[in-house]
């Protein structure tokens, strides 16, 4: 029987999925941006670019649970904050190594995510949104009153992190390319997770939790693990963000930031990892440009968002599919 050897991939499906192709295009554009910026005598864009890369990592991490696990976390900025404060706290003890800072950020975030996730996942839908928001605000107010690190004023960082003793992040270009490397590595990680056995269970829970239980899975632990992974990756974005701003404050973890992350995911298109990266680029560039045009830029941004949701509910990804640039089901 020839069909016995068939793979689950549809015969018509291309070898590289649309998700990977779209991400590759984005990564190439990211890589070309700094030389272009210096050619145009606008090196300022390299710093903005680093900020975009950090938010792209965070939005992608949020998509892992929002798009694949149908868990809308409204408290994800907390992890950005943990990442940023991990840099500030370790630096105050003289530890400047990026890898150690990332490990510290991931460890704090994992603990916070396990505890708050285990409680939040007892709820569904809008209650899940509200409870994650509440936990996010708890973390926010904790750092507001954390006077050793400036309380709500935040704290300036004396220097950028080093990598194994090397001053790789010393220049804006160095920081940019290290951030890009992190984004690519984390995309590869998420891509593998989504396509794995674990990823299939997670996606299945989104599709139909009753069915998943009826074939013998308990959704809770899969959702919790995904929630923790997502939080840890978002923390890495926070580490990047602290280095980009050379400043850390509770503003990184306010609920506005959590909302912005959701906007990036929705704007880019949920559930394909590459979309949220594009969403982060679009949201932050629009913010830059509209801010230069008018102090009421948020109004225009709002109008843009409403139009986008009305005319392309699947975000930028959906728009590209409609225009036939990316293959895939609508």
């Amino acid at each position: 029987m020839t069909y016995m050897t068939a793979s689950a991939t549809h015969p018509d499906r291309p070898v590289l999925s649309g998700r990977v192709k779209a991400a590759l295009v984005l990564f190439i554009l990211f890589a070309l941006m700094p030389p272009l910026a210096s050619a145009l005598n606008d090196p300022f864009y390299v710093l903005i670019g680093t900020r975009i890369l950090a938010y792209a990592i965070a939005a992608m991490a949020l998509d892992l649970i929002l798009g694949y696990g149908a868990m809308v976390s409204f408290g994800h900025a907390a992890y950005l904050g943990f990442g940023a404060y991990a840099v500030a706290i370790l630096q105050s003890y003289g530890v400047n190594d990026l890898i150690l800072q990332i490990l510290f950020a991931v460890a704090i975030s994992a603990i916070f995510a396990v505890v708050t996730g285990a409680i939040s996942l007892r709820t569904r839908g809008v209650y899940f949104i509200m409870i994650t928001l509440a936990f996010g605000q708890m973390a926010f107010f904790f750092f507001i009153s954390f006077s050793a690190y400036g309380g709500d004023d935040g704290v300036a960082l004396a220097q950028r992190s080093t990598v194994l003793g090397m001053d790789l992040l010393g220049t804006d270009y160095g920081l940019y390319y290290v951030s890009l490397a992190l984004l690519i590595a984390l995309f590869a990680l998420c891509h593998r997770i989504v396509g794995s056995r674990f990823g299939r269970v997670l996606t299945g829970i989104r599709e139909n939790p009753t069915r998943i239980e009826a074939i013998g899975f308990s959704p809770f632990r899969y959702q919790l693990i995904a929630f923790v992974i997502s939080g840890c990756i978002t923390a890495i974005a926070g580490v990047v963000l602290a280095n980009q701003a050379q400043f850390v404050s509770p503003a990184f973890m306010s609920w506005h930031k959590s909302g912005e992350l959701i906007v990036m995911v929705v704007l880019g298109g949920v559930g394909n990892l590459a979309g949220p990266i594009a969403g982060a680029v679009a949201a932050l560039l629009l913010e830059e440009w509209l801010d230069a045009l008018s102090e009421h830029w948020k109004l225009y941004f709002g109008i843009f968002l409403v139009l986008m949701v009305l005319f392309s509910p699947h975000g930028i990804t959906g728009l590209l599919k409609k225009m036939g640039i990316v293959r895939g089901q609508q």
Partner: peptide, 12 residues
């Protein structure tokens, strides 16, 4: 099902 890396679609 706690395998995070292998590509499940290719598991014969």
């Amino acid at each position: 099902s706690f395998r995070f890396f292998g590509k499940v679609a290719d598991e014969a």
